[in-house]
Structure formats: C-alpha cells, structure tokens
C-alpha cells in the first residue's frame, strides 16, 4: 500500500490568474479516506487557499460534487483506494461557470428549479383540522424516487444536452417537476407541462441516461424525462388528433 498519493487539483483564482492552472499536492494515503478527506488535509496542513464546498460528509447535503479523474462524483463518497494508482485529478464539475478553484456557480439551476413550480399545487387547500391527505404506500412510490434529489448537480455535469444547449431545463429540475406531477396530492401538472415543453431540449434527450448513471441517490432523471415525453405525446395526441379528448 502506498504511503502517499498525489492530487492534481485544478486551481482558478480570478484575482491572480487569467485561466485555470493545475497544482499538485502530495497527501498521506489512508484506506478510510475519501477524496474529500484528502482535500481537507491539503486545506488544513499544506495550502489554506484551496477552495471547495463541503458540509455533511455523508452523501446527503449535495455540496461536494466535483470531477474526479473526469467523472462527476460526490467527493465525500469516493474512496482514494477505489481510484486507479497514480495521481488523482480533481476539477470543478463541468458545464458551470467556475467562481474559484473547485467552486462553481449554480444560479442557473436555481432559476430553472423555480420555473417548474417545485411545490404542491392545490386548487383549494383543506383546513388543518381535516387531518392529512390520504396517500397510500403505492401512491407514494409513484414519485418517491424523484423526491430523493439532493441537488448535487452531477447530472447536469454529465448531461450532453445541457452542455450544448444551456436553455435546456435539465435532468434534476425535470425530475423534481415530475416528483410533484406524480404526487397524488398535487393539482399543478398543466402549469409544469407548459414550462417543460417550452424548450426543445427535452426532445433532444436520448435514452442514453448519463444523468441516471452518475446520480448518487438513484433518482433516475432519465426515466423521469422519458415519462414526461410519453405523457406530453399523449396530451398532444388528445388535443390535436382527438380534440374532444381533453374535455
């Protein structure tokens, strides 16, 4: 077992550098360490200027997504020892403007998230005194998977469409729209459908599923997108071929 491991980290400090640069750090190798632990070692002992986000270190807050050897991963859930020997390359997630070092701007996602109305829509909310809305375990299972999204942005980083068409609303926001669309308590499907169909990106999405492959919580955004396409097509058929069908 090696004593140390080399991390090649992409740096970018806009006040000092005009573009990205690489910096090498040698850190102790420990079998229980994740890539994030190695970054924390650098920050604490070698170079206080290295900047990145992290918080929970248990795979649920979604802060620490980065490219490790070119793959979008949560660094708190990627062991050093799982990676091939040799140096480990760490970069910010691809597809986003970099603010500094490994920190990227996720404003675009937050704007898109808001556009899909990610909240429960009711024509009329019942008074609290009436108790809970009934929802059977089967009805819960209809959308539960899509509700597991931690907003880590790995799926956007992996998405070939988002890279080419920045207007594409993207895998996580579509999955979260579907999380509400398929919730038996919700009545907001139509408004969300209108937003999703505004851009062609969704039709460009093939069933390759890079987004689902990298998702750390098995949300399966690709399935959410295909499910949308199916219902949107049925809507279209109903409204054009069978115009009375929507009555």
């Amino acid at each position: 077992m090696p004593d140390t491991v080399t991390l090649e980290v992409q740096r970018y400090r806009p006040e000092e550098e005009t573009g990205p640069a690489w910096q090498r750090y040698e850190v102790p190798f420990r079998p229980e360490w994740m890539v994030l632990d190695a970054l924390n070692y650098i920050k604490d002992h070698l170079d206080g200027t290295l900047s990145y986000r992290w918080a929970c270190r248990m795979g649920v807050c979604g802060s620490c997504g980065m490219l490790v050897n070119g793959e979008p991963v949560l660094t708190c859930a990627t062991y050093l020892e799982e990676l091939p020997h040799g140096s480990i390359r760490v970069e910010p997630l691809r597809g986003f403007p970099v603010i500094r070092d490994l920190i990227f701007d996720l404003t675009d996602f937050l704007n898109k998230l808001k556009r899909v109305s990610p909240w429960l829509v009711r024509k009329k909310e019942q008074p609290v005194a009436d108790g809970e809305y009934r929802q059977t375990p089967d009805q819960l299972a209809e959308y539960k998977q899509y509700s597991m999204c931690i907003n880590c942005m790995l799926c956007y980083s992996a998405c070939p469409i988002y890279e080419l068409e920045p207007e594409f609303i993207g895998p996580a926001a579509i999955a979260l729209a579907q999380r509400y669309n398929h919730d038996s308590r919700d009545e907001g499907v139509q408004a969300r459908m209108d937003v999703l169909s505004q851009h062609d990106g969704i039709w460009a999405c093939t069933f390759v599923g890079e987004c689902s492959a990298v998702c750390p919580t098995n949300v399966d955004p690709a399935a959410a997108i295909q499910r949308y396409k199916l219902s949107a097509t049925l809507d279209w058929v109903k409204s054009t071929v069978l115009p009375w069908g929507k009555r």
Binding site: L120, V128, E132, Y133, Q135, T136, P137, L140, S147, R185
Partner: peptide, 22 residues
C-alpha cells in the same frame, strides 16, 4: 400536529400506513 400537517400539505413524503394515513 398542525405544523406536521402543514408540512404534509406542502408535500412532504411522509411514510404511510396501508390505508393512506401517516
């Protein structure tokens, strides 16, 4: 209870009994 119900009205995916109650 009313605060928890409010969260249920906002969509929190509470685990359920077979009859659909929380």
């Amino acid at each position: 209870p009313q605060e928890m119900l409010r969260l249920e009205y906002w969509g929190c995916p509470w685990s359920r009994e077979p009859d659909g109650s929380v």
